[in-house]
């Protein structure tokens, strides 16, 4: 059984007895996993490649549903409701639980249209409101100053780091409650990485954040809680400062001291 530290904050999400099996696979990639996610905090998921951390992350907004045959079991509670039921409205779920990907995913349209995209999907057409919220999202994503004079330019003309911040702006523009980050800095240089990390820490005032990372220093720098996963199971979940200093599980200790992974 996993060693799980009691979460002091309110819970944003709660994973209960969760199993995930990819289409065509014999064995589940995530096995009987229980995990609370604290509200307005940053929870980092670490673990060696193939341990299931990205698979778990992608279950929170059910992006796995895009590919046929994947199977969820157990529960993920969001506002006391299990989001894994077939009747869950995925469009509304994904508005509430946003996602940032490993590589920047700027759409082939202008910077402005990128940020406005999610809001337009929700039917917001009022130009003044859109302009105000685009500016606010870009400001919150710490990129407004760099792009305010070229909002009509193609978003693909931005640098990788800028594109990633644009994607964050696009995600926060629809005012989600949870943001999922899937290794958001693995394609970026150190300076852009520092910028994104700073931004992630600022964002937790408004949203609950789960971040998958291969970089343990990053987990230590930004997160409040860290979950260590191994072979589809959660081995340990604890407060970050405690877990990196005094891990309670031997496997966790071996992983964070670099004995494997």
């Amino acid at each position: 059984m996993a060693t799980i530290t009691q979460i002091l904050e309110e819970k944003a999400l709660e994973v209960k007895n969760f199993e995930f099996t990819y289409a065509g696979a014999d064995a589940p990639s995530i096995k009987k996993l229980d995990m609370p996610i604290a509200k307005n905090s940053i929870t980092a998921l670490i673990g060696p490649s193939g341990c299931g951390k990205t698979t778990l992350l992608r279950s929170f907004n059910r992006i796995h549903d895009l590919y046929p045959g994947n199977k969820y079991e157990g529960e993920i509670l969001f506002k006391d409701r299990n989001i894994l039921t077939p009747k869950e409205d995925l469009i509304n779920l994904r508005i509430k639980i946003g996602m940032i990907f490993q590589k920047p995913t700027a759409f082939p349209m202008s910077i402005y249209d990128n940020v406005a995209y999610g809001m337009r999907l929700q039917g917001i057409k009022n130009k003044t409101e859109l302009e105000g919220r685009v500016e606010k999202a870009l400001t919150d994503a710490a990129i407004w100053k760099e792009v305010k004079d070229r909002l009509k330019h193609d978003a693909n003309g931005l640098s990788g780091g800028q594109q990633q911040r644009l994607c964050i702006a696009r995600a926060i523009a629809v005012e989600p409650e949870v943001l999922l980050f899937d290794e958001p800095t693995s394609a970026l240089d150190p300076i852009s990485t520092a910028g994104i990390e700073e931004l992630v820490v600022e964002l937790k005032e408004k949203v609950s954040i789960i971040i998958v990372t291969h970089n343990m220093q990053q987990a230590a720098r930004v997160s409040d809680y860290t979950g260590f996963m191994y072979l589809g199971e959660l081995i340990e979940l604890g407060r970050t400062e405690e877990m990196f200093v005094t891990p309670r599980e031997k496997l966790t200790e071996e992983y964070i001291t670099g004995k494997f992974g």
Partner: peptide, 13 residues
């Protein structure tokens, strides 16, 4: 890239 589709779906499209 499929990530571009996923990103659009992730915004609730």
């Amino acid at each position: 890239p499929s990530t571009l589709r996923e990103a659009a779906f992730a915004l609730g499209a």
